[in-house]
């Protein structure tokens, strides 16, 4: 139960700190600046959430923590209010902030605002370079994110953003046997057109990532014969995985950490 807490923190209180400063509204401009209202809405929820975290932490035993979890505040109201603000000015920086926040928000079961928020991002913020992060984070997303990703892959003016959106769409589609062929094609496109694009300070290279994903799809699915491994063991003696044919093998990628 305690182990779930870091995730709760992340989804509940993480606010992007790297976004542009609030729009300057000149006296001649009729543009409505919703940034301040968006920030206030997010900050309200953060306060609510922090108060709840304090309660959770103060719980003395598992039963107390279970009870606290029952009362975890959802972002349902904040999400609803933010969508209302976004509607008034969907293309501004404030809307970008609101929509990316909604995509990470913890809402009640049955309410899934991420796809709607993402569709609005793809529609109104297609020029933004920050869609690179949004697209990359969706590699663990669900199939309802694919249309938005494909829009971004096609229409973003930025090569990096296109590449990340193509990769995420390929990974998501490749997971489902019914859409695997489409996923494979997208990953092959990443290798052909976006191989050198990097993310996370160079720790992720798109071509490498796509190659790995393709390898899993083609060779490491349940029902496939396992690929050979021939390598030295910890003591330096070479052996093969196939030496163990005839036995049931639990293959464990592990480390002592």
């Amino acid at each position: 139960m305690i182990l779930t807490l870091p995730l709760l923190f992340f989804t509940g209180t993480f606010s992007p700190g790297h976004l542009s400063p609030p729009l300057l509204v000149s006296s001649a401009s009729l543009r409505l600046d919703i940034t301040e209202a968006v920030e206030a809405e997010i900050s309200n929820f953060d306060t609510l959430f922090e108060t709840w975290v304090a309660t959770y932490r103060a719980a003395e035993d598992d039963a107390g923590r279970e009870a606290a979890l029952e009362n975890r505040p959802t972002a349902d109201d904040a999400v609803k209010n933010l969508f209302g603000l976004v509607e008034t000015e969907p293309a501004g920086d404030g809307a970008f902030k609101a929509l990316t926040w909604i995509m990470r928000a913890y809402t009640s079961e049955g309410i899934s605002p991420s796809a709607q928020a993402f569709a609005l991002l793809a529609e109104h913020h297609i020029e933004s370079e920050q869609l690179k992060d949004v697209a990359m984070n969706l590699s663990r997303g669900t199939a309802d994110m694919v249309p938005g990703l494909l829009t971004i892959a096609e229409k973003s003016p930025h090569h990096d953003v296109q590449g990340c959106a193509t990769l995420s769409a390929g990974i998501i589609l490749g997971k489902d046997p019914l859409t695997r062929e489409r996923g494979v094609k997208l990953l092959e496109k990443v290798i052909a057109d976006y191989s050198d694009v990097t993310h996370y300070d160079g720790r992720l290279v798109l071509g490498k990532k796509a190659t790995g994903e393709l390898y899993v799809m083609r060779n490491l699915q349940v029902g496939m014969t396992v690929p050979e491994i021939e390598n030295e063991d910890v003591d330096g003696v070479v052996f093969k995985l196939s030496d163990y044919r005839g036995k049931v093998v639990l293959l464990d990628f592990w480390g002592d950490w």
Binding site: K208, G212, V222, V226, V248, L251, D252, F253
Partner: peptide
């Protein structure tokens, strides 16, 4: 090299392989 080829990004990652070398569970 092995974890890269197998695209392993979380530890532990487990595969259960039957006596004929077929992947049965991940």
């Amino acid at each position: 090299p092995i974890s890269t080829q197998w695209n392993v990004s979380g530890w532990p990652t487990l595969y259960l392989i039957d006596h004929e070398g077929v992947i049965r569970h991940k």
